[in-house]
């Protein structure tokens, strides 16, 4: 067919399509512009708002959201999704807090909670990869299981008492000079994820499975291996996000990170990762998480909470629709 192509309205088409291709192939550029615009808007709406304190707090929230959105990015690249992240993250923060007065202390708590998070992810991965159940259902069911166990654990640990360990609070709310300590967790996580996706064979497999599972299989990929590892990894990431969040808010409850579930999906979507798989990456997600955080901050200046939700939802649809239009096969 291309042999038979000829162009019509060359000039107009060229300029329009150049833009299209630019947006499609380098979503980071418009996303970053959008982020900057939002920050500027925030400062215009409330002069003086954008100061080091605001930046620190925005970065903190974006860090938690960014890690959780990492779970969604990885799973969405394979055409999946992880709806258990809110439950798993809350569980991890909470379980760690209950270990504060126990033998072993917080290191033990972190080991147990991340172990449990990995286990939950592993079970999800087995369900998705080996039993081939839809990831939406598996992770949802796993979320309920984790939430139930966390509640049981809560009742068990009423007597022993709990509290967010000081070490985790330091990570979550302390600063190192001007920089929030959360970055000590987030930056390594981000680097690992970026490299994982761009420079490792495993990352390639995630894209391959998401783009075309049949082609992957015919090329010798055993997708169950990839998926089991993927969901376990997603569980661990969610656990880490839960620890950071419990340090940030200095609370530990079994529902602490729940409100982040939907924004985590939204951040990945805004960052250009397709929920249908095979397209996207973590760099966009990071910017997406920042955009959502700044957006929430801007909206909180001008709008009451209910309207914020409305605008938030509308923007996600709008951005997703723009992507759908840009990446549509012509």
């Amino acid at each position: 067919m291309t042999a038979a192509t000829s162009t019509v309205g060359r000039n107009r088409w060229l300029s329009a399509s150049t833009w299209r291709n630019l947006l499609r192939d380098y979503p980071l550029v418009p996303l970053t512009i959008l982020l900057v615009l939002l920050v500027v808007l925030a400062d215009i709406l409330q002069p003086g708002l954008v100061n080091p304190g605001w930046v620190t707090s925005a970065v903190r929230q974006a860090a938690v959201l960014g890690i959780l959105a990492g779970c969604q990015t990885l799973t969405m690249l394979t055409g999946g999704i992880d709806l258990s992240v809110g439950f798993v993250a809350s569980m991890a923060g909470f379980v760690t807090a209950t270990f504060v007065h126990q033998p072993g202390g917080w290191p033990m708590g972190i080991a147990v909670s991340l172990g449990a998070a990995a286990l939950a992810g592993l079970v999800s991965g087995i369900g998705v990869g080996i039993f081939r159940v839809h990831p939406l259902i598996v992770t949802l069911g796993m979320g309920l299981v984790v939430f139930g166990f966390a509640n049981v654990w809560q009742l068990q640990s009423v007597q022993t008492g709990s509290g967010v360990p000081i070490e985790i609070r330091t990570i979550g709310s302390g600063t190192l000079g001007a920089l929030p300590n959360d970055l000590l967790v987030f930056v390594p996580v981000a680097i690992v994820l970026l490299l994982l996706l761009k420079r490792t064979g495993y990352g390639r497999m995630l894209y391959a499975i998401g783009d075309n599972p049949i082609a992957a299989r015919l090329s010798g990929v055993r997708s169950w291996q990839v998926l089991v590892v993927l969901y376990a990894l997603s569980g661990v990431l969610a656990g880490i996000a839960g620890l950071v969040q419990s340090g940030l808010s200095n609370t530990a409850s079994v529902t602490l990170v729940q409100p982040y579930l939907l924004p985590s999906v939204a951040a990945a979507v805004i960052g250009g990762t397709s929920i249908l798989g095979g397209r996207g990456g973590y760099s966009g997600t990071i910017v997406g998480a920042l955009i959502l955080t700044v957006l929430a901050s801007v909206l909180s200046i001008v709008l009451p909470e209910p309207w914020r939700q409305v605008v938030f939802g509308s923007i996600v649809v709008l951005v997703a629709a723009t992507y759908a239009r840009l990446t549509a096969e012509s």
Binding site: R199, T200, G201, M205, V221, R222
Partner: peptide, 14 residues
């Protein structure tokens, strides 16, 4: 390069 990374030992650094 898809088949290059198909097996677990090939999942590492490219």
């Amino acid at each position: 390069s898809l088949p290059f990374s198909a097996r677990i030992p090939q999942w590492g650094w490219i």
